[in-house]
Amino acid sequence: MPQDFLGRIWYILDNNWMSFLTGAVNTMIIAIVSTLIGCVIGFAVGLVQTIPLNKKDNPLKKGVLYLVRLILNIYVEVFRGTPMMAQAMFIYFGSSAVFGINMSMWFAAFFIVSINTGAYMAETVRGGILSIDPGQTEGAKAIGMNHVQTMTYVILPQALRNIMPQIGNNLVINIKDTCVLSTIGIVELTYTTRSVSGALYTYFEAFSIAMVIYFILTFACSRLLRMWEKRMDGSDNYDLATTDTLAHTSGLYKYTGREEERD
């Protein structure tokens, strides 16, 4: 084993690059898939929380909605309010000890990260929907759209655009926080780093490598998402659909009646 820092780093990489790669790939798979599932959960919960109720609705609908919202609120508060590592232990070990369910490690991993992301995204989505000008909903209603159509075509596309930075944020957090899954035995980046360093007693070097890999992953993801946001915004200008641009220049003609009233 070389004596200098860079030499040792090179040595570790040379001998363990496969482990680091596997760890990084597993980390990314869990982070990306769980963020996506979490977004779906978040949108579902956020949508239920923003269903409008009015006096004319029947009491059964109101009652059911009230109950469902209560359960969803509890879900959001519990998962936001407890550490993911504790949840991982609780769910993975608890499910077999108490309910006799033997979850696969991977299922547990996706489940825990998704359900966590979902809890955070639920509030983000709810806020995103509420932040859209009520005029948008009224415009949609005024042309006869129902609630589902209004949400699908008008509100959600705008809300999604507005919460894109938050989705990116969640992805970055998930890339980092999957490290807690090493406690239930998932071979992600932190797990592989620990086994590499443990074998050779080179914690500093191995974790330096891990830090760099984590940073590259998170940085690349946030840049990619930023680019995607830009694309969602579309172009800053538009083409006039005619060659005769003078045909309709706004503000040039006046309703003549207005002059009289000032006389």
Partner: peptide, 25 residues
Amino acid sequence: KNGIDEAAYRSKVGMVFQSFNLFNN
């Protein structure tokens, strides 16, 4: 009355708002 399809009714009665309310997306 209760039970009227509000959306169907609104599709026959248009509205133009002071603040336009065009779909921004």
